[in-house]
Structures are given as C-alpha cells and as structure tokens.
Amino acid sequence: MEVVFAITSGVLYATGLYLMLRRRLAQIIIGIGLLSNGTNLLIFAAGGLTRSNPPVVSEATGQLQVPYADPVPQALILTAIVIGFGVIAFSLVLAHRVHQSLGTDDVDDIGTEARR
C-alpha cells in the first residue's frame, strides 16, 4: 500500500512541478494544486498506513482500543487542505485580474506587457 501512495504522490509532485514551469497562468495554478495534493498524500503515507481502530475512547471500556490509528497526520492534512483551498482560490482570482488588466495569460508576455 505504501508503494502505491509513494508512486502516486511522486507522480503528483512531478506533474505539479512540470506544470508550474509552464507559461500559462492556468497551468501554473493547476500545478500548485497538484503539488499541494501530492504533499498531502505524502504526509498521509509518512504518518503510517494501518488498518486499525479510530482513536476514540470508547464509552464502554473507558480506554482506547489498540491498535488505533494516529490522528495527527489526518489533522495536519485537513489543515493543509483548507489552507491549500484558500490559496488556490486566491491565485485564481489573481490570475483572472492579470488576464483582465494585461489581456494575456502568458507569463513571458506579462513581463513585457507590464513594462509597457
């Protein structure tokens, strides 16, 4: 299972970085999204993939049932997803503004248009 996660997140990193090196704003933003998803999967896999009980103290026994899953990576990922969502939303708005004010979505043209 770890292998599948490792390969998937590796592919996400690679495609994300490749897209961030492209010239169109939309591709860069998709790249940012893929990169942050790759990171989330990596945290999930690094935290340990186990088939076990939820880390909740049961009312009947008053204690945790071993083995239980580590809740921290999931909390970290949840936070990272929320932050990533906000960041992507903001980048989209910014890219829209760039397109509106410069009439181009090509990173190379942005530099020359802006100097004009």
Binding site: T39, G47, L76, R97
Partner: peptide
C-alpha cells in the same frame, strides 16, 4: 499585478517544500 503573481507562486512553492519536510519528519 505581474510582480504579485511571481511572489505568490514562488512562496507557494516554498510552502509546499516546507510541508514536505514536515511530513517526512513527522513520519
């Protein structure tokens, strides 16, 4: 606006790299 886009992209990349390190460290 053009400067802002560069700033945003490079800083998001830095954040992703930092987060990757955090994931490996926690693991």
């Amino acid at each position: 606006i053009a400067a802002a886009f560069k700033y945003v992209t490079i800083n998001l990349l830095a954040s992703a790299v930092f987060l990757t390190g955090l994931g490996l460290l926690y693991g």
